[in-house]
């Protein structure tokens, strides 16, 4: 591993949503959407965050943007001058400068753009909010941004409905880049697109990363996309990280049974590789009422008595790989290239 300067360190992040019942709206329980997640992101890297729906991937993204108030935990961010701040605790006013440095690209290009605003207004809005440009200058900057993501600046007075899904996603990227951010959180940024367009957007994201030295947190459920774009991957299951590893390691030699099952479940576009798939039984556990011990044990092929009682912690197993499994050292699991 090359040395890297850590840009963001998330420590024991928790986001519990209260469940309220009855006339008095008493709190009867909590949905533990994110339950003690720790990871760090280095400058210029792409961290992939994968997991099934409902495992808390998006909630992490939204906590980082402070769209949610995290229940507890710290999110230490290092700004350009090398000072560190805890984003989780900053009050609204002091947060504003950091909102320029962390931006988000959303999943659905159809609902994330306001249909009543022109492309110019959509992309210019963050610049206006932060009083960075106005008048002719504003238009020039929007034009430059649109060009950068491969759109014709002449189209900036059109409304989103005039654009296709791929073009809309480009508009979303231009909006995210308007404030020259350092970290971009891509929340399923290519999931809603057709395969041929998906490849175009992935290429744009990579080019921009090189040009602007961006750091991505790439949230996705599509493992083949994550393998393509990410440097390191974190796998999530019911609000917890179960494995974090460099991409190549994770895909070749996963150490957590959930990662193995997830990898084997992906249909491979090659009929000669019709795999002996590991089909996980049952469904993702309910984050309001998770199982005891290791959350994955009811679906795990290798579960033993200890797994039902004792919760494994994320621990280092060498080569930058961290796993939350009691038997990470003993199991020999197969990755994607093994078969």
């Amino acid at each position: 591993m090359e040395k890297c300067s850590v840009l963001l360190t998330v420590n024991d992040l928790k986001m519990h949503f209260p469940i309220r019942h009855g006339f008095l709206q008493r709190v009867t329980g909590y949905v533990k959407a994110v339950d003690g997640v720790s990871f760090s992101v280095c400058c210029g890297e792409t961290l992939g965050l994968v997991g099934e729906s409902g495992c808390g991937k998006t909630t992490i993204g939204r906590c980082l943007m402070r769209a949610y108030e995290p229940t507890c935990g710290t999110m230490i961010y290092q700004n350009e001058r090398g000072e560190t701040v805890d984003l989780a605790r900053l009050p609204g006013r002091q947060l504003k400068p950091y909102r320029r440095e962390l931006r988000m690209i959303f999943q659905d290009p159809y609902s994330s753009l306001n249909p009543r605003m022109t492309v110019l207004d959509i992309v210019a809005e963050p610049l206006r909010v932060h009083h960075l440009a106005k008048g002719k200058d504003l238009e020039d900057r929007v034009a430059a941004l649109l060009k950068r993501v491969g759109l014709r600046p002449e189209y900036m007075r059109r409304y989103p409905h005039a654009f296709s899904g791929g073009q809309r996603q480009r508009i979303g990227i231009a909006r995210a880049l308007a404030l020259s951010p350092r970290i971009v959180i891509c929340d399923e940024a290519v999931s809603a697109l057709d395969v041929s367009v998906q490849a175009q957007i992935l290429n744009i994201l990579q080019d921009l990363q090189l040009e602007l030295n961006l750091t991505y947190l790439f949230i996705s459920h599509d493992l083949s996309v994550v393998e393509y774009i990410a440097d390191r991957v974190a796998v999530m299951y019911v609000g917890k990280l179960v494995e974090v590893a460099p991409t190549e390691r994770l895909f070749n030699a996963p150490r957590h049974p959930y990662t193995e099952a997830l990898l084997s479940a992906v249909p491979k576009p090659d009929p000669r590789m019709r795999s002996r798939r590991i089909v996980l039984e049952g469904e993702v556990a309910d984050p309001a009422n998770p199982p005891s011990g290791c959350y994955f044990h009811p679906r795990c092929r290798y579960a033993q008595a200890r797994c039902a009682t004792e919760r494994p912690e994320l621990h280092d197993v060498g080569q930058g790989q961290q796993v939350a499994c009691h038997f990470a050292e003993e199991l020999s699991l197969s990755g994607v290239r093994a078969n």
């Binding site: 296709s164 791929g166 073009q167 057709d194 395969v195 041929s196 367009v197 998906q198 490849a199 175009q200 992935l202 290429n203 990579q206 493992l223 083949s224 996309v225 393998e227 393509y228 991409t247 895909f251 990898l263 992906v266 491979k268 576009p269 090659d270 990755g335 994607v336 290239r337």
Partner: peptide, 24 residues
């Protein structure tokens, strides 16, 4: 073109994807 444009699990990365130009 369709087969070239998809990222394939377990194949060497670092090559760029080869998207189909334009759109439907």
């Amino acid at each position: 073109a369709l087969l070239r444009s998809i990222p394939k699990l377990g194949q060497s990365k670092k090559g760029r994807l080869d998207p189909i130009k334009g759109m439907v």
